[in-house]
Amino acid sequence: MTFRALCLAPVLAMLAAAPALANVTLVLANPAPRAAVAAPPHILVLSFSAPPQMGFSNVAVTNQAGNPVQAGRPEAVAGQPFELAVPVAITLPGRYTVNWQIRAYNQRSTGSYSFTVTQ
Rank of each mutant, 00 (worst) to 15 (best):
Leu26Thr: 04
Gln53Arg: 14
Gln70Thr: 12
Ser47Gly: 05
Val88Glu: 04
Ala78Glu: 04
Val69Cys: 06
Met54Phe: 11
Val61Ser: 00
Thr116Met: 04
Ile43Asn: 10
Ala32Glu: 10
Ala29Ser: 12
Asn58Ser: 15
Leu44Lys: 04
Ala50Ile: 03
Arg73Gln: 11
Ile43Asp: 13
Ala65Glu: 12
Gly66Glu: 10
Phe82Asn: 09
Gly55Val: 07
Ser114Ile: 03
Tyr105Asn: 14
Gly79Val: 03
Val45Ile: 11
Ala76Pro: 03
Ile90Thr: 06
Arg73Asp: 10
Tyr96Thr: 02
Ile90His: 05
Leu44Tyr: 03
Pro74Leu: 02
Leu28Cys: 11
Ala76Cys: 01
Pro93Gly: 08
Gly55Met: 11
Pro81Ser: 01
Pro31Met: 07
Gly94Ala: 05
Ala36Lys: 14
Asn58Tyr: 02
Phe82Tyr: 07
Arg95Cys: 04
Val24Gly: 14
Ser47Phe: 05
Tyr105Lys: 12
Val77Arg: 02
Gln53Trp: 08
Arg95Gln: 05
Ala60Ser: 15
Gly55Thr: 08
Thr62Leu: 06
Ala35Glu: 13
Asn67Tyr: 14
Glu75Lys: 07
Gln53Thr: 15
Val59Trp: 03
Ser49Asn: 04
Ala22Glu: 13
Leu26Trp: 05
Val69Ala: 05
Arg73Met: 09
Gly72Asp: 00
Pro68Leu: 06
Val27Trp: 00
Ser47Arg: 08
Gln53Tyr: 11
Thr116Arg: 06
Gly79Cys: 04
Val24Ile: 12
Gln70Lys: 09
Pro74Ala: 07
Asn106Tyr: 11
Arg95Thr: 10
Ala22Gln: 14
Ala32Trp: 07
Pro93Lys: 00
Arg34Met: 10
Thr91Arg: 12
Ser47Glu: 14
Gln64Lys: 08
Pro40Gln: 08
Trp100Met: 06
Asn63Tyr: 11
Val77Ile: 00
Gln101Cys: 07
Gly94Leu: 00
Gly55Ser: 12
Val45Phe: 06
Leu44Gln: 01
Pro40Ala: 10
Gln107Ala: 14
Tyr105Gly: 15
Asn30Asp: 15
Leu44Gly: 03
Pro68Gln: 08
Asn99Gln: 11
Gln70Ile: 05
Pro68Trp: 02
Ser57Arg: 04
Val98Phe: 01
Asn106Val: 11
Pro93Tyr: 03
Leu92Phe: 00
Gly72Ser: 03
Thr97Glu: 01
Val61Tyr: 01
Leu21Met: 14
Ala38His: 14
Leu44His: 05
Ala71Asp: 12
Arg108Ala: 12
Ile102Asn: 05
Ser109Met: 03
Phe56Asp: 15
Phe82Glu: 07
Pro33Gly: 09
